[in-house]
Protein backbone atom coordinates (compact mmCIF):
# COMPACT_ATOMS: atom_id res chain seq x y z
CA UNK A 1 0.00 0.00 0.00
CA UNK A 2 1.48 3.24 -1.16
CA UNK A 3 0.32 6.79 -0.32
CA UNK A 4 2.58 9.60 -1.59
CA UNK A 5 3.11 12.34 1.01
CA UNK A 6 2.28 15.19 -1.37
CA UNK A 7 -1.32 14.06 -1.92
CA UNK A 8 -4.53 14.43 0.10
CA UNK A 9 -6.92 11.51 0.66
CA UNK A 10 -10.60 10.88 1.27
CA UNK A 11 -12.24 8.25 3.43
CA UNK A 12 -13.74 6.78 0.28
CA UNK A 13 -10.21 6.14 -1.10
CA UNK A 14 -9.67 8.91 -3.61
CA UNK A 15 -6.64 11.20 -3.84
CA UNK A 16 -6.22 14.85 -4.71
CA UNK A 17 -3.02 16.60 -5.77
CA UNK A 18 -3.18 20.25 -4.67
CA UNK A 19 -0.22 21.07 -6.92
CA UNK A 20 -1.75 19.85 -10.21
CA UNK A 21 -5.47 19.71 -9.36
CA UNK A 22 -5.64 16.07 -10.46
CA UNK A 23 -7.63 13.38 -8.70
CA UNK A 24 -8.08 9.65 -8.90
CA UNK A 25 -8.42 6.47 -6.84
CA UNK A 26 -5.80 5.29 -4.37
CA UNK A 27 -3.43 2.35 -4.43
CA UNK A 28 -5.40 0.83 -1.56
CA UNK A 29 -8.61 1.09 -3.56
CA UNK A 30 -7.18 -0.53 -6.68
CA UNK A 31 -5.85 -3.36 -4.53
CA UNK A 32 -9.26 -3.95 -3.02
CA UNK A 33 -10.96 -3.89 -6.41
CA UNK A 34 -8.30 -6.14 -8.01
CA UNK A 35 -8.10 -6.27 -11.82
CA UNK A 36 -9.97 -3.28 -13.19
CA UNK A 37 -11.54 -3.91 -16.60
CA UNK A 38 -13.75 -0.89 -17.18
CA UNK A 39 -13.69 2.83 -16.38
CA UNK A 40 -16.26 5.42 -17.27
CA UNK A 41 -15.51 9.05 -16.43
CA UNK A 42 -18.81 10.73 -15.61
CA UNK A 43 -17.76 14.37 -16.03
CA UNK A 44 -16.58 16.32 -19.02
CA UNK A 45 -14.06 19.12 -19.34
CA UNK A 46 -15.88 22.34 -18.52
CA UNK A 47 -18.20 20.78 -15.92
CA UNK A 48 -18.37 22.25 -12.44
CA UNK A 49 -17.44 19.46 -10.04
CA UNK A 50 -18.64 19.37 -6.47
CA UNK A 51 -16.54 17.55 -3.87
CA UNK A 52 -18.13 14.24 -2.90
CA UNK A 53 -20.10 13.71 -6.12
CA UNK A 54 -19.41 10.79 -8.44
CA UNK A 55 -16.81 11.48 -11.13
CA UNK A 56 -16.21 7.97 -12.39
CA UNK A 57 -17.49 4.43 -12.30
CA UNK A 58 -15.09 1.50 -12.34
CA UNK A 59 -15.58 -2.25 -12.65
CA UNK A 60 -13.10 -5.00 -11.90
CA UNK A 61 -13.48 -8.74 -12.42
CA UNK A 62 -15.25 -9.02 -9.09
CA UNK A 63 -16.45 -5.61 -7.93
CA UNK A 64 -17.76 -2.25 -9.02
CA UNK A 65 -17.30 1.15 -7.43
CA UNK A 66 -18.19 4.79 -7.84
CA UNK A 67 -15.28 7.19 -7.55
CA UNK A 68 -16.13 10.47 -5.85
CA UNK A 69 -14.54 13.88 -6.31
CA UNK A 70 -11.93 14.47 -3.62
CA UNK A 71 -12.12 18.19 -4.40
CA UNK A 72 -14.46 20.72 -5.96
CA UNK A 73 -13.79 23.09 -8.83
CA UNK A 74 -13.99 23.38 -12.55
CA UNK A 75 -12.89 20.35 -14.58
CA UNK A 76 -10.28 21.36 -17.15
CA UNK A 77 -9.33 17.89 -18.35
CA UNK A 78 -10.42 14.28 -18.07
CA UNK A 79 -8.18 11.31 -18.73
CA UNK A 80 -9.72 9.91 -21.93
CA UNK A 81 -6.99 7.29 -22.33
CA UNK A 82 -8.28 5.27 -19.36
CA UNK A 83 -11.22 3.97 -21.35
CA UNK A 84 -8.89 1.90 -23.53
CA UNK A 85 -6.43 1.01 -20.78
CA UNK A 86 -8.28 0.56 -17.49
CA UNK A 87 -5.47 -1.65 -16.18
CA UNK A 88 -3.41 1.55 -15.70
CA UNK A 89 -5.53 2.14 -12.60
CA UNK A 90 -3.95 -0.97 -11.11
CA UNK A 91 -0.39 -0.32 -12.25
CA UNK A 92 -0.11 3.46 -11.79
CA UNK A 93 -3.03 4.86 -9.80
CA UNK A 94 -1.27 8.12 -8.86
CA UNK A 95 0.35 8.78 -12.23
CA UNK A 96 -1.15 7.70 -15.54
CA UNK A 97 -4.27 6.66 -13.64
CA UNK A 98 -5.43 10.21 -12.86
CA UNK A 99 -9.07 10.74 -13.75
CA UNK A 100 -10.09 14.38 -13.65
CA UNK A 101 -8.07 17.59 -13.39
CA UNK A 102 -9.55 20.66 -11.72
CA UNK A 103 -8.73 24.33 -11.94
CA UNK A 104 -8.60 26.05 -8.55
CA UNK A 105 -9.57 22.77 -6.92
CA UNK A 106 -10.65 23.06 -3.31
CA UNK A 107 -10.28 19.79 -1.42
CA UNK A 108 -13.35 18.37 0.27
CA UNK A 109 -13.05 16.34 3.47
CA UNK A 110 -9.51 15.05 3.12
CA UNK A 111 -6.63 13.79 5.29
CA UNK A 112 -2.87 13.69 4.84
CA UNK A 113 -0.88 10.63 3.83
CA UNK A 114 0.01 9.55 7.38
CA UNK A 115 -3.59 9.70 8.52
CA UNK A 116 -4.72 7.84 5.40
CA UNK A 117 -2.14 5.09 5.90
CA UNK A 118 -3.33 4.63 9.46
CA UNK A 119 -6.94 4.58 8.22
CA UNK A 120 -6.13 1.85 5.70
CA UNK A 121 -4.17 -0.19 8.22
CA UNK A 122 -7.15 -0.08 10.54
CA UNK A 123 -9.42 -1.55 7.88
CA UNK A 124 -7.03 -4.44 7.20
CA UNK A 125 -8.16 -5.96 10.49
Amino acid sequence: MNAPANLKYTKSDEWFDPATGKMGLTDYAQGQLSDIVFVEILVEAGDAVEAGTAIASVESVKASAEIYASAGGSAVAVNESLADAPEVLNSDPYGAGWMVQLENGAPGEVMDAAAYEAYCAEREH
Binding site: V37, F38, E59, V61, K62, S64, E66
Partner: peptide, 13 residues
Protein backbone atom coordinates in the same frame (compact mmCIF):
# COMPACT_ATOMS: atom_id res chain seq x y z
CA UNK B 1 -17.49 -12.28 -17.81
CA UNK B 2 -17.95 -8.57 -17.05
CA UNK B 3 -20.15 -9.68 -14.18
CA UNK B 4 -19.50 -6.46 -12.25
CA UNK B 5 -22.06 -4.83 -14.60
CA UNK B 6 -24.79 -7.01 -13.17
CA UNK B 7 -27.20 -6.59 -10.29
CA UNK B 8 -25.55 -8.99 -7.85
CA UNK B 9 -22.50 -6.73 -7.75
CA UNK B 10 -23.62 -3.33 -9.01
CA UNK B 11 -26.98 -3.48 -7.19
CA UNK B 12 -29.00 -0.25 -7.63
CA UNK B 13 -26.48 1.16 -10.13
Amino acid sequence: TLTAREQHIKRER
